[in-house]
């Protein structure tokens, strides 16, 4: 028995050691190396590369696309979650599979899809040309800001509904049904009953959606070609890194460090939200 306990302890130590080593080599060292690389030309250069005209423009585009993606996807997420968890209808399973499509396809294909829709060869492209001729406007979708926004919405589309649906499923629909039978309107039911339940899940979904939207690269790369105008932060990092000089590589890491800090904030926020949600479950 004594022997066995010792064995168990040894196995435990080995497994923990493997885990810590794996995480250190695969995740921690890369994280630290971003910071080291970004400061390799000194702090002054670091600040200077963050203030370049290109970086500031990229920051603006990124924030714009992210805010719109979060708003659109929150709205959709709440609608879809309500539909999927409060009603039973045919094709529900197919619907929730369709919502998950962006999880499983390459972001490059998302970019391609918008080019094939709104681009020169796309069926919607010719309509846009007609509208532009008719109204004298110059609306551009592909290789312009709307394309960047659409691609960002596409890749983050299921993020918020995916977080809300399990919570609402676990809660059931008794409370809403009771409220409806007593004559409450749909919006009142949502505000008074559903929203308090999904508050934390919604917040976590928004955090995830924000992180993904800020960092989207493949889809946006296909749809955005003008540096300083339609480039997002990840595209700016790509351009700086591929420029190849040690100065610009350092600048690429400097811009990356902003996104690393955001990623860490996301992880911490996730833990706080999860903790709060868990405590709420225990209180009930």
């Amino acid at each position: 028995m004594q022997e066995n306990k010792k064995d168990k302890k040894a196995v435990q130590m080995i497994l923990i050691a493997i885990s810590v080593l794996f995480i250190t080599f695969m995740l921690v060292i890369p994280l630290i190396s971003v910071i080291i690389n970004s400061l390799s030309e000194g702090f002054v250069y670091y600040l200077k590369s963050l203030q370049s005209e290109y970086t500031l423009s990229a920051l603006k585009v990124t924030l714009f696309a992210t805010v719109i993606a979060v708003i659109v996807n929150s709205f959709f997420g709440i609608m879809a979650a309500w539909l999927i968890t409060k009603f039973s209808f045919k094709g529900k399973h197919i619907l929730s599979t369709l919502i998950d499509i962006p999880f499983s396809i390459s972001p490059v294909i998302a970019g391609l899809a918008f080019i094939m829709t709104f681009g020169r060869l796309g069926w919607a492209g010719s309509y846009i040309t007609k509208i532009n001729d008719l109204l004298g406007t110059n609306i551009q979708i592909v290789f312009a800001i709307p394309g960047v926004v659409l691609a960002t919405i596409f890749v983050t589309f299921p993020f918020i509904s995916r977080e809300i649906i399990p919570v609402l499923n676990a809660q059931g629909k008794d409370e809403e049904e009771a409220a409806a039978l007593m004559g409450a309107s749909g919006f009142t039911i949502f505000r008074k009953i559903t929203l308090p339940h999904i508050k934390w899940a919604l917040l976590y979904g928004i955090i995830l959606c924000t992180a993904r939207a800020l960092g989207e690269f493949g889809a946006v790369n296909a749809l955005s070609k003008t540096r300083g105008e339609t480039f997002t932060l990840p595209l700016e990092i790509d351009a700086l890194y591929l420029a190849g000089s040690s100065d610009s590589i350092t600048a690429a890491f400097a811009v990356s460090s902003i996104l690393v800090i955001i990623a860490i904030v996301v992880i911490v926020a996730r833990n706080i939200v999860e903790y709060k949600a868990k405590r709420k479950m225990e209180d009930r």
Binding site: P30, L31, S33, V34, N37, L208, A211, R212, L214, G215, E216, F217, G218, L233, P234, L235, I237, D238, Y241, I249, A252, F253, S256, L259, V260, I262, A263, I264, V266, I267
Partner: peptide, 11 residues
């Protein structure tokens, strides 16, 4: 999940 792919890539 949280780190942008391009940042992970260059790092």
């Amino acid at each position: 999940f949280a780190l942008p792919t391009a940042v992970a890539g260059i790092t």
